Simulated scan of single mutants.
Amino acid sequence: MTDTHEPRDPELPGRLLVVERDALVPLLRSLPDADFARAVEACPGWTVRDVLAHCATVLTRVLERRFEPGVFSPESNERDIADRAERTHAQIIDELERGMTEAGPVIAQAGGVLDMIALGEWVHAGDLRDTFGVPGAYAGPGTPHALALLAWVTREKGHLPVHADLDDVDEPLRLGAADGARPPARFIGDSATLVRLYAGRSLDGMSYELVGAAAPELNIFG
């Protein structure tokens, strides 16, 4: 069983970003221009280009260590997207690629407070694949890193305890803070559906079992 009491691995967020870079960037560079205007269902009001601009900006902020008051609020995110309105699609992808390549060491040195950024970038990559109808949108080569990071983040956030039996992972996964105040909830399903639950994404057509908790309670981004 993967134990959430394992110490933080400072290199884990960077590994996740690099693995996802290698999976996502070639797909983005192959897109026709029209695809950048497609709406992203998981991010109401945003297009593919908007999501990419947001993801690129977040990582650039990490690299430049720019975290002014109100950063990452909805208003701040919209300003960041607007600031990139004159850039080409290729320039935004270049910025994203650089961030995914170089942000890992900065996140590692931050002591854990930025770890969730890497997880958010991975989830947004899934949002984009889902928009394009790519099978296994919230899965792929980064899944082992993402699950390990999810376990650590939910423990640090004091999230409710969950015992996850995953169809596509050999060992069960323990998430959240097992403080005895609440018995662990039980999840049975695949890892992509687990990610959807914790990211607050659509579960339409997903097959899973969740006992002892309601789906909205698992959302770490809400």
Rank of each mutant, 00 (worst) to 15 (best):
205 G>C: 08
190 D>M: 03
179 D>F: 10
89 H>S: 11
116 M>E: 11
12 L>C: 02
16 L>V: 10
208 Y>L: 04
5 H>Q: 14
9 D>T: 11
77 N>E: 06
87 R>I: 00
70 G>K: 12
176 G>N: 09
98 R>E: 14
165 D>C: 02
158 G>Q: 12
73 S>A: 13
47 T>A: 11
38 R>H: 10
19 V>L: 09
185 A>T: 07
140 G>M: 11
11 E>S: 14
159 H>Y: 01
126 G>Q: 06
55 C>R: 07
170 D>N: 02
37 A>W: 00
163 H>D: 14
134 V>Y: 04
169 V>F: 11
33 D>S: 15
28 L>N: 07
109 Q>D: 15
159 H>E: 09
93 I>S: 02
76 S>A: 14
96 L>V: 04
155 R>N: 10
210 L>P: 03
61 R>N: 13
97 E>I: 01
201 R>C: 05
51 V>L: 14
178 A>T: 05
131 T>H: 05
109 Q>L: 13
87 R>F: 03
182 R>W: 02
118 A>S: 15
142 G>L: 04
195 V>Y: 05
142 G>P: 02
8 R>P: 00
214 A>W: 02
130 D>S: 15
131 T>P: 08
129 R>E: 12
99 G>I: 04
20 E>K: 12
74 P>G: 05
58 V>W: 06
193 T>A: 14
91 Q>W: 00
23 A>H: 10
206 M>W: 01
146 A>D: 07
43 C>R: 15
174 R>V: 06
21 R>I: 03
91 Q>T: 10
206 M>V: 04
150 L>K: 11
128 L>D: 08
170 D>I: 02
199 A>F: 06
212 G>D: 01
18 V>I: 13
115 D>K: 06
58 V>R: 12
126 G>D: 02
134 V>M: 13
10 P>C: 08
97 E>S: 14
122 W>E: 06
123 V>Q: 05
54 H>I: 02
95 E>T: 03
171 E>F: 02
92 I>E: 05
106 V>G: 00
55 C>P: 00
204 D>P: 00
67 F>R: 09
100 M>L: 09
152 W>E: 14
212 G>P: 01
151 A>G: 15
215 A>P: 12
59 L>T: 05
174 R>L: 14
51 V>W: 05
217 E>Y: 03
28 L>D: 10
108 A>W: 08
4 T>E: 13
47 T>M: 07
168 D>F: 07
197 L>H: 08
156 E>H: 13
63 L>C: 10
33 D>V: 13
155 R>T: 07
138 Y>I: 07
6 E>H: 08
201 R>Y: 09
175 L>M: 14
112 G>D: 03
154 T>P: 03
138 Y>K: 10
7 P>C: 12
56 A>Q: 09
131 T>K: 04
59 L>H: 01
182 R>M: 13
